[in-house]
């Protein structure tokens, strides 16, 4: 029995608590996807076509540099979302995202989502509020990480 994709969207924290028609609207742009361990959901430089709502499994946000094991910038898990570069031109991914284990996610088509947001500003505003909240949270966390509070004290 296939579940209604709108229900799956509504279950995800990014969209939970919003009116059901919002979840259905997003569901109309979505499909259920699976990514095998070690495979890339996002590839730096490639067109950013989807927002991924993670339901199962963890994803590492990485940057590759020749001569190094990929540098892990962040780890994103179930209930979180991956991929923001679809929101603004030039719509290209800035980082790689790799499945650390089998990943189950809802893939929301970006062009579809942007079109719906443009056509329905009320929906667009709700979407932006939710996304901005997540981004602010991430930015604060990243700023604190930059402080390198566990680093050795260096006396000059």
């Amino acid at each position: 029995m296939t579940e209604n994709i709108g229900d799956l969207v509504a279950e995800h924290p990014l969209f939970s608590g919003l009116p059901t028609d919002v979840a259905e609207l997003v569901g109309g742009c979505s499909q259920n996807v699976a990514i095998a361990t070690g495979q890339l959901l996002l590839e730096e430089g490639e067109p950013a076509r989807s927002l991924y709502l993670l339901r199962r499994g963890h994803v590492a946000l990485e940057v590759h540099e020749p001569g190094r094991v990929p540098l892990v910038i962040d780890r994103i898990g179930p209930g979180q979302a991956v991929g923001w570069s679809w929101m603004f031109p030039p719509y290209r991914w800035h980082f790689d995202a790799r499945a650390l284990e089998p990943v189950g996610a809802i893939s929301v088509d970006a062009e579809c989502l942007r079109a719906k947001a443009e056509a329905d500003p009320a929906f667009g505003y709700l979407l932006m509020k939710r996304i901005a909240a997540v981004m602010l949270d991430r930015l604060q966390a990243t700023r604190v990480r930059l402080l390198d509070v566990y680093g050795r004290d260096v006396t000059h």
Binding site: P90, R92, H94
Partner: peptide, 15 residues
């Protein structure tokens, strides 16, 4: 600079 930095800088310039 490091290749990561060059990739991002080129994108920034192109944008």
């Amino acid at each position: 600079g490091p290749e990561i930095m060059m990739r991002f800088t080129v994108r920034g310039l192109a944008d």
